[in-house]
C-alpha cells in the first residue's frame, strides 16, 4: 500500500513514520500529480487556514475530491478533519466538503487548554492515548457517518465510508493502531477496485 501525506504544512514526518510502522509505503505529497500513484491520503495536523489556502492555491481541491470519489481513503487528523468537513461553524466556506459533518474549530479553547487523555475507539481493542492540541470537535454528523469515539459526549473521531477523521493527533505517540486501521481501509479499497 502506498499512502501519501499532504505536505503543504504541518506534522508530515510523524505521519510518515506512523504509516511505515503500520506496514505501508509512505510519501510526502506536495504536487497534485503525485496523487495518481496513491492508495490513500492523510491530511495531517497543522494550521487548517494555512493548509486550506495552499490547497486552493495549488489546485488540490478538485483532484482530492476525485480521489475520494474513486473510493480511495482519506484520513484527516485535527486540521485535516477540518479540511474534510462539509461545514465549519462560524465560516461560510469549508474546504474539501467531503464528510457530512459540522466542525467547530479550537473547540476546547486556547493552547493552555490542550490536553492528552485515554480514549476508547470503535474497532480498536484497547484505549488509545489521544493528544488534543487546539483541537476541533465534530458537533453534528449526517446519517451516513459512523461515530468512532467521543470525549465528554462530544464526537472526536468518525468514519464515512472511505473517509476517516479524528480531532486528536495519533501521529504524536508511538501507538500506531489508528494508522494500521487506515492502512487496512486502503487495502480493502484497493482490493475492491481490482
Amino acid at each position: 500500500m502506498k499512502i501519501g501525506v499532504l505536505a503543504l504544512q504541518g506534522a508530515v514526518a510523524e505521519h510518515i513514520r506512523g504509516l511505515e510502522a503500520a506496514g505501508a509505503e509512505a510519501v510526502a505529497v506536495k504536487r497534485v500529480e503525485e496523487l495518481d500513484s496513491l492508495d490513500g491520503l492523510v491530511i495531517p495536523g497543522g494550521e487548517s487556514t494555512t493548509i486550506g489556502k495552499l490547497m486552493r492555491k495549488y489546485d488540490f481541491i478538485d483532484p482530492i475530491r476525485k480521489f475520494s470519489a474513486e473510493g480511495k481513503p482519506l484520513f484527516g487528523t485535527c486540521a485535516g478533519l477540518i479540511v474534510l468537513a462539509d461545514r465549519i461553524e462560524g465560516q461560510d466556506d469549508a474546504h474539501l466538503e467531503l464528510m457530512d459533518m459540522t466542525v467547530q474549530r479550537n473547540a476546547f479553547g486556547r493552547q493552555r487548554e490542550s490536553f492528552e487523555t485515554d480514549l476508547d475507539i470503535k474497532g480498536i481493542d484497547e484505549p488509545i492515548r489521544a493528544v488534543f492540541i487546539r483541537a476541533p470537535l465534530i458537533k453534528e454528523v449526517g446519517a451516513g457517518v459512523d461515530v468512532l469515539s467521543t470525549y465528554k459526549d462530544e464526537i472526536v473521531a468518525a468514519r464515512q465510508n472511505n473517509l476517516l477523521a479524528c480531532s486528536f493527533h495519533p501521529e504524536l505517540t508511538d501507538d500506531y493502531r489508528l494508522h494500521a486501521y487506515f492502512v487496512d481501509m486502503a487495502r480493502e479499497a484497493a482490493a475492491s477496485r481490482v
Partner: peptide, 19 residues
Amino acid sequence: METGTSRVKRGMAEMQKGG
C-alpha cells in the same frame, strides 16, 4: 486528562512545521 504535558507542548510546535 492532563494539560501542559511535554507531549502537548512540543506537539503544538510540531503542528507549526513547514510554516
